[in-house]
Design a binder for these strands. Structure first.
Lengths: 220, 220, 220, 220
DNA sequence: GGATAACCGAGACGGTACGTCCGGTCTTACC
DNA sequence: GGTAAGACCGGACGTACCGTCTCGGTTATCC
């Protein structure tokens, strides 16, 4: 389940081509046939690989799936090293959450991600790995953006950024996993707005009141 | 998957004892052996029932699990018909979320609930049923409490109560499902506080404002 | 491995069609692909049957093979209930041994019989069954013929008939199994003659000559 | 499968130590775990040898086994270069067959020999090799002893010695391979006596009695 | 109140996948 | 170039369950 860089001194005679074929096959298969019908045998067949080659290197179906995501993540590394930071926190967060919504709705990722979540929920070891390798780095980027906003005085100074991240992405992911409702851009916006302002009524203040007043005028 | 009351006009010759035995067996088994090793055959054996009796009445393993929860829910109906309403919204919500945390941490419910969530995430039909029969009623109670607070001016007047519910329970459930961190009472409290106040700095009025003013002086 | 006659009170819900299909497939397969490549999986596939159905009723590949022969034997029961008894022991034995030679040389039986012998040689339990159900009855028929000859004074009075049977068929079977030489009708004849007369030189005697003389007259 | 003496001009870089380790391991393993569970991998592991080294030098598992016997035979060469020849054919044969019985009953040789026979019965090429290298020389020794008896007039002059050998050892080997009955010294004796005298009644005659009488005189 | 039909337990059945073992080939690093 | 080590593709093992299908044996209702 480790991801050996060939540059390391490791003397493993592992076949890199097989490894990639397996991860690709796993990802494609789960998206085609769904989690319930995903089988090691199927993955091996699709990858043109002996079953033993899978069992030799991964302890479980979930671990394969996890590595498949890891491979994907590494490929798209460097793409965007960080959340957008235009200075407008609300807009930036809305943009990011809308992107998340789109990804979750994307049929290429929907099933695979549900599958990964299922594995994680039933396997603490895998969950730890997930926290370390996938969720962790992502969460760090999110917290960076929030920290920047916090420094700019746009977020409460005593805010626990982990809680903040949960507050923003938790509702979204939960609605997606439990299928409690449709995942739309509007919903993402609502989450951001409500999370930022809180559930309590906000006494309008100078600047803010003005801003809102303006908008009410512009879009009655 | 229907839950026939025998008092209804239904002319089903269904054996109520078998039905209960199956649901009980399913719930107990999933909690003992885990989701991955839960099998229809195991349920039938434990319930002392023929496999066909399960296949006759339920379309899937998930449906059995769902009904098991439904049975549980009905048993504890009337227990508390509504969330506590002491007038102190924050305290009431903290109490409820702490209770949720305890339930999710309870080894009797942890695995079964994860299993149910897994089934729901992979089966839209089941998810719809879940929304209608289990989540729906629960959510209604939550919204009632929030509505009451809203009427009392403790919540924003234009607040979307569904979003509010998501904002409060979403982070909790997501952290639990993804095992992103420990579920503690403190965490529940943080969620409630942060959700109510929002992520943005609150210009406290009167005393609060002073505090912020002070801080601004201290850390310019 | 038992061979249930449906007439028995047995309440087994065993599928007779599957049973026959399995035995037929096993026999045909071993003769087509050879013992080394005979697999339970192959038998199941050829018989159109689940593997479990084989494992449910037979403890080993050898047991299936054994039952296949048993089925064959039962089909050809009644065909010849006993060895030929023309009064001419030597001729009768030669006829029977020549028939055995032909059977062993028959490509339809060669491989299957080698396979059965292999299983027997490595599995005492199977060997016991073989002795009881297949070899036993056959051997009884052979001994009957010899007994008849013994009563007619054509065989030594103190002859152990089991040894006699071994003496006649043992060399043949051994040469076949060990491939020590070709199995021909001539070889069968040699065995019979040598076994009857013994290895020692025989002085011709009155009586014997007479007997032969008489027969030469009766059947020129 | 060849058995290269290093003294030969062969320029093979073959590792003699590995060769012996493999043959020894094969022999020991088959006797410990039985023919069915004998595997190339197991042999390689036990011999501390790479699998390839086996595949490089032997075409099949049976060939390894065969060579293992060959090695054994060569070690005990010179031991007894010929069957005992006391002049008393019957006694000599009984002694030899009893020795054979003991060898077949010896747990050290039983399984290995059954295994070799199995390989031979299913592999004509191996059988040819067996006939040439193992059975052939042995048979020649047997025939020598019989020839000697034949010259002494103790065996029929027109006797086919190959048939005679089969007549003596065939019943024994067949009973052993097919497990038709226990292999005892008594059984060996019966075979010898019956084979020598034949199945037919023997009218004792002057000459024979004389012969015996004479012998009693010569070797009291 | 006897017929009859749906339901029940049991479990055999044709299948699919499991996780393991081994066959035979190929590669790597050593000697 | 032979060797120990062992990864690799593939095929079979024996087991566990799937979902379907009989099989007798209760019920429970309807004639």
């Amino acid at each position: 389940m480790t991801t050996p860089r060939k540059s390391l001194s490791s003397t493993t005679r592992r076949n890199e081509a097989s490894r990639r074929a397996i991860l690709t096959a796993a990802f494609e298969l789960v998206q085609e046939v769904g989690y319930a019908k995903l089988s090691i045998e199927g993955i091996a067949a699709r990858a043109g690989v002996g079953k033993q080659t899978i069992y030799r290197w991964w302890p479980s179906k979930g671990a394969v799936l996890f590595d498949a995501f890891l491979m994907l993540a590494e490929q798209s590394d460097g793409e965007g090293t960080g959340l957008p930071d235009t200075g407008d926190l609300e807009a930036d967060l809305k943009a990011v959450l809308r992107a998340t919504v789109e990804e979750l709705n994307d049929p290429r990722y929907d099933e695979p991600m549900r599958a990964l979540n299922t594995e994680i929920t039933h396997d603490p070891a895998l969950a730890a790995l997930y926290a370390e390798r996938l969720d962790g780095p992502m969460r760090e980027l999110k917290k960076q953006r929030l920290r920047s906003a916090q420094r700019a005085g746009q977020l409460a100074g005593d805010l626990d950024l982990d809680v903040a991240v949960d507050m923003l992405w938790g509702p979204l992911l939960n609605r997606w996993l439990q299928r409690t409702g449709a995942l739309t851009a509007d919903y993402a916006d609502s989450i951001v707005e409500t999370a930022l302002n809180g559930l309590r009524p906000r006494r309008r203040m100078a600047g803010q009141a003005t801003e809102n007043a303006e908008r009410r005028i512009l879009r009655p």
